[in-house]
Design a binder for these strands. Structure first.
Length: 257
DNA sequence: ATGCCGTGGAAACCACGA
């Protein structure tokens, strides 16, 4: 079973790229972030025609997350991250597919830091960690995936010294991620490829993709039950080279069924 | 060293992204 995460950076602007990738790679489950579309403008028909059911949590202009499934039913959908009813951002959707609890998240960027946006990021992170703590010890398999907007270690940044003051790499941000993982989650990419330079995002500027000046910010965290079933993981890097593409590439894992 | 590009929405620019 192949499960992917993909920050599409505008689901409608990116629809041809998304549909081409779905057709070529046929992931079983896809977690999407940055839909940048309200619920009524989610391209449900095109996605259904491509062979996928979908559940989504949209918002006008920004944010927005969705879960797609090719074969198995999408069940027990939860919209929004618990813990703050006043949070209006659509950044979390959770569902059960093939008895796997899947949390699809788009963690706040947080720049400029310090400042109110960074405060929001850290508060959101705390809420995520609280919610994750309720999921980690479930007997059933659990997956948290999406755009975490965190590079966990130096190896995850093409030039770490340039990013030390950035909201994605500041010590408090990395500490929050480390705290989350230390609940007992397995970072699938790092578990399988502990030493390799693996990026999931390349800036549109300065020929970042051509220079491979990338960041690893899209992650898969598996609870112990699911971690036992992990087979492989990777990045569909070629998609980043397509016309009219997102600045993120799709990332995927395969798990034993 | 830097939003230099890209998106959506409203308005002919702005907010936002990482």
């Amino acid at each position: 079973m192949k499960i992917a995460t993909y920050n599409v950076n505008g689901v409608n602007g990116r629809l041809p790229v998304l549909l081409r990738w779905l057709e070529e790679e046929k992931p079983d489950v896809v977690c999407l972030q940055e839909l940048k579309a309200p619920d009524e403008k989610f391209p449900a028909t095109a996605i259904n025609d491509a062979g996928y059911q979908a559940a989504w949590h949209g918002q006008k202009s920004w944010n927005g997350v969705a879960i797609l499934s090719r074969k198995a039913k999408i069940e027990n959908v939860v919209l929004g991250l618990p813990g703050n009813p006043d949070d209006t951002h659509s950044r979390y959707i959770q569902a059960v597919i093939n008895d796997i609890i899947i949390g699809c998240l788009y963690l706040p960027n947080g720049n400029p830091a310090p400042g109110p946006k960074y405060d929001y990021k850290l508060r959101w992170f705390e809420r995520l960690n609280t919610h994750a703590q309720t999921l980690i010890n479930k007997k059933s398999p659990v997956l948290l995936t999406g755009d975490f907007n965190v590079m966990p270690e130096n190896i995850d940044v093409y030039k770490p010294e340039r990013w030390v003051d950035d909201a994605l790499f500041r010590p408090e941000t990395r500490a929050a991620f480390k705290k989350l993982v230390s609940q007992g989650w397995t970072d699938a990419i790092r578990k399988l490829y502990p030493e390799e330079k693996i990026y999931t995002f390349w800036d549109y500027f300065r020929n970042a993709y051509g220079r491979d000046a990338g960041l690893r910010i899209d992650h898969f965290l598996l609870n112990p039950t699911l971690a036992k079933r992990l087979i492989n993981a990777g990045v569909d890097k070629k998609v980043r080279g397509w016309e009219k593409t997102s600045d993120h590439a799709p990332v995927w894992i395969t798990i034993d069924e």
